[in-house]
Design a protein around this nucleic acid. Structure first.
Lengths: 107, 107
DNA sequence: CTTTTATTTGGTTAATTTGCCAAATATCCA
DNA sequence: TGGATATTTGGCAAATTAACCAAATAAAAG
């Protein structure tokens, strides 16, 4: 890994790091195709609202979501919808792991 | 996020977490289409070989790569090649962030 | 203009991750 | 067998991340 590429890998890793949290994955999935108000996440996620706000800001800083204030509320939406495609591949990884476990059990 | 889905999100996040490190991203890219010996990573990555070995084991435990010992060497290969598709979308996120910076500068 | 509601920010502590060193393992070669 | 090479594992200290509480900010309603 030569020096000029190193910062590139750091930048890429930071994007993935922003997604690599159960609550943030949930948020991103909820944002598939629609925008959501912070207030909705506060209702459905079992965590302090300040914690939820910080998760949203991690996603925003990573460039994955964008926000817009309207009245008292802040609405978040996906800025780069291709992140939703990650989920399919992640599911394949998990399924492949489960199949492996099954094979071990049946042998 | 109801309770039955919670562990699903944790599992998915763990897969992404395994990818969310510059060194591990580099490793995964190197494994695109070919297998690599640990010894090659030891040559090209500027870190202790024990550190590299641990990164490989993180990827292995996540189910992303597999290993095979042949003689003195251990060869790693991608088990779930679809992870390579992540890179394209990550690049889009980063590009979109850069374009945004440009617009701010030009306004 | 004071109060209420929605959200963000600051600060602290606990948990997790990372990287190095040293030691253990395993294979190969003399 | 004994030594050299390749890789993994254990352990520890430093760095990063996460969660909560309390306080700050901002818009809306009374």
């Amino acid at each position: 890994m030569d020096v000029q590429n190193k910062s590139g890998y750091i930048a890429k890793a930071n994007v993935l790091k922003a997604l690599a949290h159960p609550t943030r994955l949930y948020i991103v999935e909820q944002l598939a195709g629609k925008e959501c108000c912070v207030c909705e996440f506060v209702k459905t996620i079992d965590a302090d609202f300040s914690t939820i706000s910080k998760h949203l800001s991690v996603l925003k800083n990573a460039g994955i979501v964008q926000d817009e204030k309207r009245g008292q509320n802040v609405f978040y939406s996906l800025k780069v919808p291709c992140v939703l495609r990650f989920m399919d591949c992640v599911d394949i990884v998990i399924k492949s792991r489960i199949e492996e476990q099954m094979q071990i059990l049946n042998s």
